[in-house]
Design a protein around this nucleic acid. Structure first.
Length: 122
DNA sequence: AATGTGACATACC
DNA sequence: TGGTATGCCACAT
């Protein structure tokens, strides 16, 4: 395997697909763990997406993990960004408003990798 | 080796 | 309507 990341062989591809998907989230948009899992054919393994995000911190290349929230738009992973409010800061830097650890207008900003409206419209 | 713990989601009382 | 249980599976202890 390429990097020093410890990922089980048979799931390495899955993790990489997660990273690729996350990297395609447009700036200023967000998606959910479940949407990614569903898109990759592991609808019931959304927790693994969370694990992938956890691992992504060790990746040589940057993965915009802050654009992934739970299905309610809550920043459940904020404690994994070093500083408690780093995730929120990153989001707000992209024009996404956050109140009470929740993305404002989540439904509008939601980007589904399956439908990928941004990619289809262009 | 066995058990517990999650950056989740869904189903069911 | 809201809490609880369960599926999921890599990883830590």
């Amino acid at each position: 395997m390429t990097a020093s990341i410890k990922i089980a062989e048979r799931h390495r591809d899955f993790f990489e697909m997660v990273f690729e998907t996350v990297k395609q989230i447009p700036e200023g948009r967000v998606t959910s763990y479940g949407a990614i899992a569903r898109y990759l054919g592991m609808a019931r393994s959304s927790r693994m997406v969370g694990w992938a995000m956890n691992v992504s911190h060790r990746l040589p290349e940057p993965v915009p993990a802050h654009r992934v929230v739970n299905r309610a738009g809550v920043l459940t992973g904020k404690h994994h960004f070093g500083a408690p409010d780093r995730m929120q800061t990153l989001l707000e830097a992209e024009g996404i408003k956050v109140e009470n650890d929740r993305v404002v207008d989540f439904e509008k900003l939601f980007w589904d990798p399956a439908s990928a409206p941004e990619l289809r419209l262009k």
